[in-house]
């Protein structure tokens, strides 16, 4: 095995992990605070990507595209919360998943109506579209490096927001005892809307960051959202720390599994058998990890403390 390649694959795994964290943090926030399961989170990821694509073409700059698309995604999140989601807080989880499943159908079709059935490729500015040499011989696309950097900054910002600001204090208080917080005179409805919008922005950001690599396409959120669910199941639903660690773990395991599991199998079985079994196993790897974690810790690795 080539060590340089291993390092590059680890970086790729981190990049996937960062994207998963951006998605999973929003899911875990809305679940931890509002006890709300949002299947349509992946649709906000898609909306972010499409908004960014259009704005990049209008402004001629990817950076402006992202900066303008972020508040618009927040608005989209607020609209969704206002029209549908807030009527569901008092319902059970089955209602949450079904109504947000309906939301996916609506949002996907509206995206189809507005942007058409084709995907939109997002061009990168020249200074992001190159490669950088990190260490001797390790060359990595600069945009992927930017994703990792941006994600780590956002993770740090979220940590600061949740643990060291007044809003974060309210969020934590709301997560442990909703009734008490509203009895103390906090407008819990506004808090919920804010948190939902924050989740939408995080998901939208993930979509904007991936759009230049893949492209903005309809249904792009529906696949990755399941992986994001695996992340929060493994990390413990409602835990931000768990979401971060599990996202990194799953990003790395998935990427490295796809690259190296056939080599690993070749040590134990014939080349032919290894080449048949490896794709199937690497496709299932993160779900096997989830199963193992659940066997030993049904509440995930870092279950939030419940009072």
């Amino acid at each position: 095995m080539d060590l340089t390649l291993v390092v590059i694959q680890c970086l790729n795994g981190m990049q996937l992990g960062i994207l998963l964290f951006l998605l999973a943090s929003g899911l875990t926030l809305t679940f931890g605070i509002m006890d709300f399961v949002n299947l349509a989170h992946g649709s906000l990821y898609m909306v972010g990507a499409f908004l960014c694509a259009t704005l990049t073409f209008w402004t001629g700059s990817f950076i402006w595209g992202v900066l303008l698309a972020l508040p618009l995604t927040a608005l989209a999140g607020i609209a969704v919360e206002f029209i549908v989601v807030r009527h569901l807080y008092s319902r059970d989880h089955l209602d949450h998943v079904l109504a947000t499943f309906g939301l996916i159908l609506c949002i996907d079709t509206m995206t189809h109506l507005i942007w058409g059935a084709e995907g939109i490729a997002v061009p990168l500015p020249a200074f992001l579209n190159g490669q950088v040499e990190l260490f001797a011989g390790i060359i990595f696309p600069s945009f992927r490096l930017l994703i990792i950097g941006a994600g780590l900054i956002v993770a740090g910002g979220l940590y600061y927001l949740v643990n060291h600001t007044r809003l974060g204090m309210l969020i934590r208080a709301g997560a442990s005892n909703r009734t008490m917080v509203s009895a103390l005179g906090v407008d819990i409805q506004t808090l919920f809307t804010l948190v939902f919008a924050l989740g939408a922005v995080l998901a939208g950001l993930a979509g904007m960051l991936i759009a230049p690599i893949t492209e903005a396409s309809i249904g792009m959120g529906n696949e990755i959202i399941i992986t994001a669910f695996v992340v929060i199941i493994v990390g413990g639903i409602g835990s931000m720390k768990g979401a971060f660690i599990a996202a990194m773990l799953i990003g790395l395991i998935d990427t490295l599994g796809r690259s190296y599991i056939d080599d690993l199998f070749k040590l134990a079985m014939s080349t032919e058998a290894a080449e048949t079994a490896a794709p199937a196993v690497s496709a299932m790897l993160i779900y096997i990890l989830m199963a193992v974690v659940l066997t030993f810790r049904p509440q995930g690795l870092f279950p939030p403390k419940v009072r």
């Binding site: 549908v84 569901l88 319902r91 209602d95 079904l98 109504a99 499943f101 309906g102 939301l103 996916i104 159908l105 609506c106 996907d108 079709t109 509206m110 109506l113």
Partner: peptide, 12 residues
Amino acid sequence: HLPFGILLILTV
């Protein structure tokens, strides 16, 4: 899918 989704939400 749009009217279908709306119907689903209304049903819930």
